[in-house]
């Protein structure tokens, strides 16, 4: 792993957390894609031997603080996410963008579902949530993010 790749990953992480925190009007907030999750998906797909399950611990803790959820909740969902990706990444590389989008949609739905269960287990007041809206927006954003990363990687001669 060379220095340019390290810088690219660091910039990507920073951007993902900026986007995750971006204040938006109430209505749009429901639509906010799961940026950090998308970034993790990219990292695991491109360098599955460097970015493994360990990634879930620091990023999960940071997401927990960002969203003020119980410490460990996002560690759990990220670990499950990365585990499934490790089973899938070879196939994902072969998929066309529609199939990839569908997989990302399902993965984000799964993460939302796990979060919802954890919240319901720990606290009593769990209102109905629109689980699928962020999943949909994440899935819609995915092809663009994927294409952008490919371009960046090609430009930096890293692919």
């Amino acid at each position: 792993m060379n220095i340019r790749a390290v810088i690219l990953v660091a910039v990507g992480l920073f951007l993902a957390f900026v986007l995750e925190h971006l204040p938006m009007p109430d209505l749009l907030l429901w639509l906010q894609p799961a940026w950090v999750l998308l970034l993790v998906t990219l990292l695991v797909m491109h360098a599955p031997h460097t970015f493994g399950l360990w990634l879930a611990i620091p990023l999960g803790l940071m997401l927990d603080v960002e969203h003020n959820s119980l410490l460990g909740m996002h560690v759990l969902t990220l670990a499950v996410h990365i585990f499934i990706l490790q089973l899938l990444y070879r196939r994902m590389a072969m998929f066309n963008f529609l199939q990839q989008t569908a997989v990302v949609f399902l993965l984000v739905v799964l993460q939302q579902l796990l979060t919802y269960w954890a919240v319901a287990l720990v606290s009593e007041n769990s209102g109905p949530v629109s689980l699928w809206i962020p999943s949909l927006s994440s899935a819609l954003v995915w092809p663009w993010v994927y294409a952008l990363t490919h371009m960046a990687l090609a430009r930096l001669h890293l692919s």
């Binding site: 611990i57 410490l71 460990g72 909740m73 759990l76 670990a79 585990f83």
Partner: peptide, 16 residues
């Protein structure tokens, strides 16, 4: 490994 992290996360949540 994944079960280890899941157990760790659950323990963290309980502790928190």
């Amino acid at each position: 490994r994944v079960s280890g992290i899941v157990i760790l996360a659950l323990a963290l949540m309980w502790l928190d």
